[in-house]
Design a protein around this nucleic acid. Structure first.
Length: 826
DNA sequence: GATCCGAATATACC
DNA sequence: ACCGGTATATTCGGATC
């Protein structure tokens, strides 16, 4: 018996003699590549109808067999087992089958049996099944004991694996080991045509901390040392494959590489009949279809950072877009090399592929820089991806491409074993459509603020409000009762689907609240550890736990969820409304004036009371809260500003600015934090807000008057006037043609690649056309000073500051600077 | 042809 | 299609006078 300590990085399964075996691709402690071969049962569950003779049923099921996919698909065994399913104890049939790929065909036969009530877990991926049942989880260290395959055996099996060890596992046991740091190559290609299948790959770059390389067949003099020339595109692809094989990375990282770099490489490789056999088993790059396809390399984890950022991480970013450039700027303080890619593409077309040497040199450096950025981004995001993968126990490939609902669901699924719970099925197409049709339920409460500038403000908020409600009220689909039972938790009455409803939740802990509670406890531990001994891995772990906890409420209301329950989502929101209202009352009863509240937070004026008085009240409120619910002090603020809505006489919700004791300013909802306003309007509003909070309103007024004057005098540079609006759908799909749609059309005419999702930039130029969109132009089409003065004064700058000044009863006319009024005139 | 108002749209908050 | 509802503001586009 031989032993190795290893860490799983990737999983897949293959057939040996018609039955499936798992391959775990990983790394040994000392850095050798290993492929661990292991087995696990392929099975699903049959739920029998009431009063079924289970033994007879089992015998009948055992006899199922059919020809399927060129082999005999058959049931190996059917065991009667006591299981839990959504709060019920049931007897179910565990149906073991010859191959996981046969489950679908076998269940089709079994579901026609009159005894069959339903089938479950037919939609569990075999790798997920393996991880659940064998508990060999990604990125944890294990000792594998077993027999290593000899060279001759591998040859006989035709397993020409690019690994150091192939071992047949007999026992795999967990072991404590230090952090793992993967060997990663970031890569990026440059082409002469953006569309896959049309053009050629001109260059390809690879980078990490040690490696910086550009491979190209476009020759030029005085090439930087990183550049390696090859004869042609075919050689470029071959050299790439050769380099990766020699370098032996654990992972390849790209940016949008799922849908661009790898499909492009594969397409070109196919053209030359080159096998892009990067897979550790010698397999080609494969594609998994989806809204954006995924590109997979067996055993060599391919991570598309764009997908991770797009699906998960973008919500924590400030960047206006999630382009490589914007994200790199924000996360690693580095940016792309500036070149005019459109110009280069155009020149390449016009000159039949010839570029000036200087241009090529710069193009190569640009290509390299993209890989360097991707590599640095990987370093930055790796802890987050790794911790998420460890928490939800799904392989890196899946986790790095997961959406919030995927993560929540995987976390649930991987924890159900200890509850002896059969996994609920994914909803079918019709079910999804039904769910989509259901009306929305009432969500959070937002209190209307009274506009004004306030002093000495306290802000309380509930710690992880919704997750703690789910835990404290034991909320799950099957703990809901419409009638009070003994030991049930009462939820305040609320309206749901047009009717007054009252729900009760039983106290027997359901698995989702239980799993969530554990998640919250783990997070508490992580936070405590972090305080003692900070590390970026701990912070990433905290991020992973927080992400999962916060997405659970939304998961209940998501139509694609296995554990969908709109009633639960509505009940959670109703409980939240109840407690925020109660908190407002409690605070007001103590003599504080509450001027604003949104979902889980309350803002109040201290008035004659002290911060200590507020903290005493906080303690008192906490003593009255059920379960794990807790109200926290968010902060005390020196000043706060609330404004009126533009239409009507009401205070504007979700719009405020606060300044703490240190002078730090927190702005929410105002135009200055929105990307669809021009910088001039945003910056002006920012200055005004700051000055107002610093009690320098007169300076603010003068500042606006100065800006308006500059606008009138055509002194404002165009880049301050660019408005950015995202094209959210296909150009043709718009019913209302807004300015950005017109500009997108224009860009398309100019041959610029415009797709939905693009951030369209435009300037409103001077002109007599009535509609704004008729004056919307591409920034480069507007000469300096040729902007529409009135538009920028009346539609951009003034609306952004008007509501702020109206708090001080200063009108638009004053802002325009005609009357030159001073604040003290009022 | 000016004006009013609702729908469509984009984006933010929690 | 890929977690939820609440909310504001802007522009269009049709109805109305």
């Amino acid at each position: 018996m031989e032993k190795e300590v290893f860490i799983p990085l990737d999983y897949d399964y293959i057939d040996i003699n018609d039955s499936a075996v798992i391959r775990i691709w990983g790394k040994t402690k000392d850095g050798r590549r290993i492929c661990v071969i292991d087995e696990t049962d392929a099975y699903f569950w049959l739920i029998p109808k009431a009063k079924t003779d289970l033994k007879k049923y089992a015998e009948k099921v055992k006899k199922i067999q059919l020809k399927h996919a060129g082999r005999l698909a058959r049931v190996l065994d059917a065991k009667i087992k006591e299981k839990n399913f959504l709060g019920e104890k049931i007897e179910a049939l565990q149906v073991f089958v010859s191959n996981p790929k046969d489950i679908s065909a076998i269940k089709d036969i079994a579901k026609e049996f009159p005894e069959t009530e339903g089938k479950k877990e037919t939609d569990i991926n075999f790798v997920t099944r393996y991880i659940i049942d064998k508990k060999v989880e990604p990125l944890e260290f294990y000792v594998v004991e077993g027999k290593k395959y000899e060279k001759e055996e591998l040859k006989a099996l035709k397993w020409n694996y690019d690994v150091d060890i192939v071992i047949k596992a007999e026992k795999i046991s967990p072991i404590q080991e230090k952090e793992f740091s993967p060997k990663v190559l970031a890569f990026d290609i440059e082409t002469d045509e953006f569309e896959i299948g049309k053009g050629h790959i001109l260059m390809l770059s690879l980078a990490n901390k040690q490696v910086q390389k550009v491979i190209t067949w476009k020759k030029f003099a005085n090439a930087p040392k990183e550049v390696e020339f090859v004869k042609n595109e075919e050689e470029l692809i071959k050299r790439f494959v050769e380099f990766v094989k020699e370098y032996k990375p654990d992972m390849l990282a790209g940016y949008f590489s799922d849908a661009f770099d790898l499909p492009y490489l594969r397409m070109r490789a196919d053209e030359y009949h080159i096998n892009l056999n990067l897979g550790l088993d010698g397999s080609n790059v494969t594609f998994i279809r989806g809204a954006i396809p995924s590109s997979e390399i067996r055993g060599l984890v391919h991570i598309d950072l764009y997908k991770f950022i797009n699906n998960i991480f973008a919500y924590t970013l400030q960047s206006e877009t999630i382009s490589l450039n914007d994200v790199a700027k924000e996360l690693i303080g580095d940016k792309k090399l500036e070149i005019d890619l459109n110009k280069i593409t155009k020149e390449l077309k016009e000159t039949k592929g010839e570029l000036k040497e200087a241009e090529l040199r710069r193009f190569a450096l640009y290509n390299l820089q993209d890989s360097i950025l991707t590599s640095k981004l990987f370093e930055k995001l790796w802890p987050n991806i790794a911790e998420l993968s460890k928490v939800v126990k799904e392989p890196l490939f899946e986790t790095s491409r997961a959406t919030y609902s995927n993560l929540v669901e995987h976390n649930i699924i991987h924890n159900l074993g200890r509850f002896d719970e059969i996994i609920q099925s994914r909803p079918k197409f019709d079910q999804i459509n039904e769910r989509k049709m259901r009306p929305k339920y009432t969500g959070a409460f937002v209190k209307e603020p009274i506009p004004g500038l306030y002093e000495n403000i306290g802000v309380f908020d509930f710690r992880s409000f919704y997750p703690n409600i789910i835990v404290s009220f034991n909320i799950a689909d099957y703990t809901i009762h419409e009638r009070k039972e003994k030991n049930s938790l009462e939820v305040p009455e609320f309206e749901f689907e047009g009717k007054k409803r009252k729900f009760y939740f039983s106290k027997d802990k359901a698995f989702i609240p239980q799993i969530l509670q554990e998640l919250l406890e783990k997070r508490k531990q992580t936070k405590a550890e972090m305080k003692k001994n900070y590390s970026s891995a701990l912070e990433a772990k905290d991020y992973a736990l927080k992400t999962l906890a916060n997405a659970t409420y939304g998961y209940f209301g998501f139509f694609g969820a296995r554990y969908y329950s709109l009633e639960c989502a509505a009940a959670i929101a109703a409980i939240a409304r109840h407690y925020i209202h109660k908190t407002i009352e409690d605070i007001e009863k103590q003599g504080f004036k509450v001027m604003y509240a949104d979902t889980d937070s309350v803002m109040f004026i201290l008035g004659k009371k002290s911060e200590n008085n507020a903290l005493e009240l906080l303690k008192k409120i906490n003593d009255s809260l059920p379960g794990t619910m807790e109200l926290e002090l968010e902060n005390f603020y020196k000043r706060g500003l609330f404004v009126m809505k533009r239409t009507g006489e009401l205070g504007a919700k979700k719009k405020y600015a606060l300044m703490d004791e240190k002078g730090n300013i927190k702005i929410r909802g105002f135009e200055s934090v929105r990307r669809d306003r021009c910088d001039l309007a945003k910056d002006t509003q920012d200055v005004v807000l700051k000055k107002v909070l610093e009690d320098k309103s007169e300076e603010a007024l003068k500042y606006v008057q100065k800006i308006v004057k500059e606008l009138r005098e055509k002194k404002v540079p165009n880049d301050q006037l660019i408005i950015k609006t995202q094209l959210k759908k296909e150009i043709e799909a718009y019913e209302n043609i807004g300015p950005h749609v017109v500009v997108a059309k224009r860009m398309r005419e100019l041959g610029l690649p415009i797709k939905e999702g693009a951030l369209i930039e435009y300037v409103i130029a001077k002109g007599n056309e009535k509609l704004i969109r008729e004056r919307a132009k591409l920034p480069e089409e507007v000469k300096a000073g040729d902007y529409d003065i009135d538009y920028y004064i009346n539609n951009q700058v003034l609306p952004a500051v008007e509501s702020i000044f109206s708090v001080f009863k200063i009108s638009v006319e004053d802002l325009k600077g005609k009357k030159q009024k001073q604040l003290k005139d009022f």
